[in-house]
Computed example of a mutant assay.
Amino acid sequence: MAYSGDVTTGGAADVRELDDLTITKVSVGPMDNNAYLLRCRSTGEQVLIDAANEAPRLLELIGDAGLSSVVTTHEHMDHWVALEEVVATTGARSLVHGADAEGLPIPSEHLADGDTVRVGDRELEVIHLVGHTPGSIALLYRDPNGIPHLFTGDSLFPGGVGNTHEDPAAFASLIDDVQTKLFDRLPDETWFYPGHGADSTLGAERPKLPEWRARGW
């Protein structure tokens, strides 16, 4: 079956096979968090985006191929409940933006805007998006043979940017970063994968940007 990105907590994972990378999306409870396992098809190296919860389930997904890194998109606890166990079991590096590092339960290597995270022969670009948290990041994979793929954490969802807790300054920062660093840089066909719920494309969401700005959330 073709990849849809529609997953449910406790349900089956959805797998997307690109020429050079395999993306496996799974939802874990209790807060319907998405975790994404990326595997380089030439080397077998794997990276996990957000060890959100249900460590045994994530470890089963990782399997015997091992794990090189876990990237945490931001410091909120629902995105790292399984981090300590996954790292302890696999020996993977823990990576997070420096501004959110103190919010994690284990010492982690610091990422910054413009850094790259290797997935075997492929790489992800780190994009810093300030507002949902000080150190929130998105991860961009530019497929040389297809569309861009963007993992947005809780900074961008279908229907709006992430929660800024009615803080006008935080909202202004986030909507500006999302527009200038994502929508202004990347084409409509860019597929994005959020921290909760269904996927979307930048093209589907682009017409709504003025509405999001006007409503303030």
Rank of each mutant, 00 (worst) to 15 (best):
Y3Q: 00
S4I: 02
G5N: 07
D6K: 13
G10P: 01
G11W: 09
G11F: 08
A12M: 06
D14Q: 13
D14F: 01
R16V: 00
E17Q: 10
D19P: 07
D19W: 01
D20C: 02
T22H: 00
I23F: 04
S27H: 03
V28C: 11
G29P: 10
P30V: 05
D32I: 01
N33H: 07
N34C: 10
L37K: 09
L38R: 04
L38V: 07
L38S: 05
C40E: 08
T43M: 08
T43C: 07
T43I: 09
Q46C: 11
Q46W: 07
V47C: 02
L48N: 04
D50N: 15
A51H: 03
R57E: 11
R57I: 08
L58R: 06
L58W: 09
L59V: 09
E60G: 14
I62H: 02
I62M: 09
A65S: 14
A65N: 12
L67N: 04
L67V: 10
T73P: 00
T73I: 07
E75D: 12
E75S: 14
E75I: 03
M77C: 00
M77N: 05
M77D: 12
D78C: 04
V81I: 12
V81A: 12
A82G: 06
A82M: 01
A82L: 05
L83G: 02
L83D: 08
E84A: 15
E84F: 00
V87S: 10
V87A: 15
V87T: 12
A88F: 00
A88K: 14
A88S: 14
T89F: 00
T90Q: 02
T90M: 05
T90C: 00
A92E: 08
A92L: 05
A92D: 07
A92Q: 04
R93T: 11
S94K: 02
H97M: 01
H97E: 15
A99Y: 13
E102I: 04
G103R: 04
P105M: 06
S108A: 15
S108D: 10
E109F: 02
L111D: 12
D113N: 15
D115R: 06
V117Y: 07
V119M: 05
V119E: 09
G120D: 08
R122Q: 13
R122Y: 01
R122N: 14
E123W: 02
E123N: 08
E125H: 05
I127S: 01
I127R: 00
T133L: 02
P134S: 11
S136G: 13
A138C: 13
L139Q: 08
Y141Q: 05
R142T: 12
D143A: 06
D143M: 06
G146I: 04
F151Y: 15
T152W: 13
D154K: 10
D154N: 12
P158R: 14
V161R: 03
N163M: 09
T164V: 11
H165D: 12
D167R: 07
A169I: 08
A170H: 07
F171E: 06
A172Q: 11
Q179E: 14
K181G: 00
R185H: 02
L186A: 03
L186T: 04
T190F: 08
P194M: 07
G195L: 12
D199H: 13
D199W: 06
S200G: 15
T201G: 13
L202R: 14
A204R: 14
E205N: 09
E205D: 15
R206M: 11
E211W: 14
W212A: 06
R213D: 07
R213Q: 11
R213F: 03
R213V: 14
G216R: 03
